[in-house]
């Protein structure tokens, strides 16, 4: 039982991070019907930038909370700028091109971001500065680190606030209108290009937060870390129903739980033949199964293409 709760907690932590990233995929897909392959790499850049900044600031003797805030702010700034640049320079010129074009551009941009990071930060692993938040408390046998608490509460707060904003505010309404019918939205006087930029900004900012969180959680950052994370977050978005914001959050958390529990117990069930080294297979199998049996996801609506 204790192991179970422990795995649930670990899964929840992971799931919250997936949810933050998944939201970025789903927001962009909801409006542009484009898989932004470079989104996972923004998370990686968020992690590396915040790592570098926190280290530097700490080196100057800045107290940890300030260094952290500085790292987060810097990472968000860099990611948001990159997100905007990505949209402007790569995707916008292809808005009316055949569908293959933006997809190929997306994979190309992902490669560019990854290899540029390899040039800037090298191909090695970077250890994340110790935030002093890993000293765990025990709660009925379950180990909880303050960091886990910060990740879960922080991301849930962020996600809740964002969902509320999009459901309630005028800006959110404009976003939803653009997602549903860009042409009609434009006729109603909505500046759809601005909305699209905004979507990239939100996604990139969330990616930066997620980057700092994964970096701190696993205490390591690396220029290829965005790839698997991105794949999983996309799976989460599909699981929840791509284009659906609450779905992305739900899918992220479910996938995190699935992965933690699956990886935790699979080894026991199979006499350690299939252990946690297969955990990445879980999310992929989930993706295939969802696509096979319920491609519109848990909360998604199946909207047929208009003919």
């Amino acid at each position: 039982m204790v192991t179970f709760l422990q795995q649930v907690l670990n899964g929840l932590t992971l799931g919250c991070i997936y949810a933050l990233v998944a939201l970025g995929y789903t927001l962009v897909y909801g409006i542009l019907e484009l898989i932004n392959f470079a989104h996972g790499d923004l998370v990686m850049i968020g992690a590396l930038v915040s790592l570098t900044l926190v280290r530097t600031l700490q080196g100057w003797g800045t107290p940890l909370p300030v260094a952290l805030a500085g790292g987060l702010a810097g990472a968000m700034g860099v990611c948001v700028l990159l997100g905007i640049a990505l949209e402007r320079l790569a995707y916008r010129p292809l808005r009316h091109a055949p569908k293959l074009a933006p997809l190929i551009t997306a994979i190309g941009m992902s490669m560019v971001l990854e290899q540029s990071s390899a040039l800037l930060w090298g191909r090695g692993y970077h250890s994340f500065p110790d935030l002093g938040l890993t000293h765990s408390l025990t709660l009925g046998g379950v180990l909880i680190s303050p960091l886990q608490g910060v990740i879960v509460l922080g991301s849930l707060g962020l996600l809740g606030g964002l969902l509320w904003l999009i459901q309630r505010s005028a800006l959110g309404r404009a976003m939803r209108a653009t997602a549903q019918n860009p042409v009609a939205a434009q006729l109603l006087g909505i500046d759809t290009e601005r909305i699209i930029t905004l979507v990239f900004v939100i996604g990139a900012a969330l990616a930066a937060v997620a980057g700092l969180m994964v970096g701190a959680y696993y205490q390591v950052a690396h220029y290829t870390m965005g790839f698997m994370l991105g794949l999983k977050a996309f799976t989460a978005a599909v699981l929840g129903g791509i284009g659906n914001l609450s779905g992305a959050v739900l899918g992220g958390i479910l996938l995190g739980l699935l992965e933690a529990l699956g990886a935790g117990y699979l080894g026991d069930w199979t006499g350690n033949l299939f252990g946690s080294n297969y955990k990445d297979v879980f999310s992929f199998a989930t993706l295939i199964l969802v696509l096979l049996f319920h491609p519109s996801g848990l909360l998604g609506r199946h909207a047929p293409e208009k003919v």
């Binding site: 790569a90 292809l94 551009t105 994979i107 190309g108 490669m111 290899q115 040039l119 191909r123």
Partner: peptide
């Protein structure tokens, strides 16, 4: 300073983006 194999992959990425554009 610039690892040739990193440069090669970077060039692949840039090629894809530039060609599509």
């Amino acid at each position: 300073l610039i690892d040739p194999s990193t440069l090669r992959l970077l060039l692949f990425g840039i090629t894809l983006v530039v060609l599509m554009r």
